[in-house]
C-alpha cells in the first residue's frame, strides 16, 4: 500500500476514539450549537427516488438502441447484398450505377405486407436529371408457369421484374422525360394482382 487504503485503515478505526480519550483537545461547546444550526439551515440533499426509474429507463433505452442497431446492420447488409447483386447482374448498364450511386438519387423502399427475415423486398431509384428509373427486388418467390412480377409506380404499370433462381431481379425503364417522380410503388403478382411488396414516400 503506497497510501493507507480504506480496508487497511478500518483496522485502525478504533484509534480516533482512543486519541480523543487521551488528547487535551476537545471541541468547544459552541461548535456543537454551530454545527447543529448549520445542519438545520441546510437544504437536504436527498437522493431522488426517481433514480431507480431513471436507471431502468436508461437500461431499456440501451436495449432498444442495441436492437435498433442490429436491425440497422441487417438492413445495411441487405442493402449491400442487393446492390452487389445488381452490380453483378447489370454490369453492362452504366446508367444503373449513375442512378443508384448518385448523391441526388431518390430511393423508394417496397416491403412485403408480412415482414420477416425471408420476406421479399424491392427498391426503386430515380434522379432529377435522368430519364431512367432503376428497380431491383430480392427474395422474390419462384414464379409458377405463366406468372409475372409487375412493377407499378403510382397507378402506372412500368414493367416486369424477372427474378433469377435466387429471387433477385432488376428493371431499367426509360420514362421518356427527365426527373421522374413517384409517391407509391408496388410489385404485383400477376395474374391475380396480389401485392408482393409495396411502399410509399
Amino acid at each position: 500500500m503506497e497510501r493507507v487504503n480504506d480496508r487497511d485503515a478500518e483496522l485502525l478505526d478504533g484509534l480516533p476514539e482512543a486519541l480523543a480519550a487521551s488528547s487535551p483537545h476537545a471541541p468547544p461547546p459552541a461548535l456543537r450549537a454551530r454545527v447543529l444550526a448549520a445542519a438545520a439551515a441546510r437544504p437536504r440533499r436527498r437522493r431522488s427516488t426517481l433514480w431507480p426509474l431513471a436507471a431502468a429507463a436508461v437500461a431499456a433505452a440501451l436495449v432498444a438502441l442495441v436492437a435498433w442497431n442490429v436491425q440497422l446492420q441487417q438492413a445495411l447488409a441487405q442493402d449491400r447484398s442487393l446492390l452487389a447483386q445488381l452490380r453483378d447482374a447489370a454490369a453492362g448498364h452504366e446508367i444503373v450505377f449513375e442512378i443508384v450511386d448518385a448523391p441526388n438519387t431518390t430511393k423508394l423502399l417496397l416491403r412485403a405486407p408480412a415482414a420477416g427475415p425471408a420476406a421479399p423486398y424491392a427498391k426503386v431509384y430515380w434522379r432529377p436529371d435522368q430519364r431512367q428509373i432503376v428497380a431491383m427486388a430480392g427474395r422474390l418467390p419462384a414464379l409458377a408457369a405463366g406468372q409475372t412480377y409487375e412493377l407499378w409506380l403510382d397507378e402506372t404499370r412500368v414493367g416486369v421484374i424477372a427474378p433469377d433462381e435466387s429471387g433477385f431481379g432488376y428493371l431499367i425503364v426509360d420514362t421518356g422525360a427527365r426527373g421522374p417522380s413517384y409517391r407509391t410503388g408496388r410489385v404485383l403478382l400477376q395474374p391475380g394482382g396480389s401485392v408482393v411488396v409495396a411502399g410509399e414516400r
Binding site: P16, L19, S23, A26
Partner: peptide, 9 residues
C-alpha cells in the same frame, strides 16, 4: 465530533 476534533487539532 470529539474524535474528529482531537485528530484535527
Amino acid at each position: 465530533a470529539p474524535r474528529v476534533f482531537a485528530w484535527a487539532a
